Amino acid sequence: MIRPAPLMDPCGIERALVRSVDVLVQDAGGRTLLQFRDGAARTYPLAWSFWGGAVDDCDETLAHAAARELEEELGVSVRPEEFELAGRRVARSGRTAPLFRLVRALAWTDITIHEGAGAGWFRRAEILSLPATPSVVFHAQESPRLFGD
Rank of each mutant, 00 (worst) to 15 (best):
M1F: 12
R3D: 12
R3V: 14
P6N: 10
M8P: 01
D9F: 12
G12T: 07
E14M: 13
R15D: 01
A16G: 12
A16Q: 10
L17M: 12
L17T: 15
R19H: 15
R19K: 14
V21F: 07
V23F: 01
L24K: 04
V25C: 12
Q26G: 03
Q26R: 14
G29C: 05
T32S: 11
Q35I: 11
F36T: 02
D38C: 13
R42L: 13
A47Y: 05
F50C: 06
F50K: 08
A54M: 11
D57S: 08
L62Y: 04
L62V: 05
L62K: 03
L62G: 03
H64E: 11
A66R: 02
R68V: 12
E69N: 13
L70C: 04
L70N: 00
L70F: 00
E71C: 10
E72R: 15
E73F: 01
G75F: 06
V76M: 08
S77K: 12
S77E: 09
E82V: 08
E82Q: 15
L85T: 01
L85A: 04
A86M: 10
V90A: 09
R92D: 15
R95S: 11
A97V: 14
A97E: 07
P98M: 08
V103K: 15
R104L: 09
A105R: 10
A107L: 08
D110T: 09
H114D: 11
E115R: 09
E115A: 04
A119W: 09
L128Q: 02
L130A: 09
T133V: 11
P134Q: 06
H139M: 08
H139D: 09
S143E: 12
S143N: 05
S143V: 03
P144K: 08
G148R: 07
D149A: 13
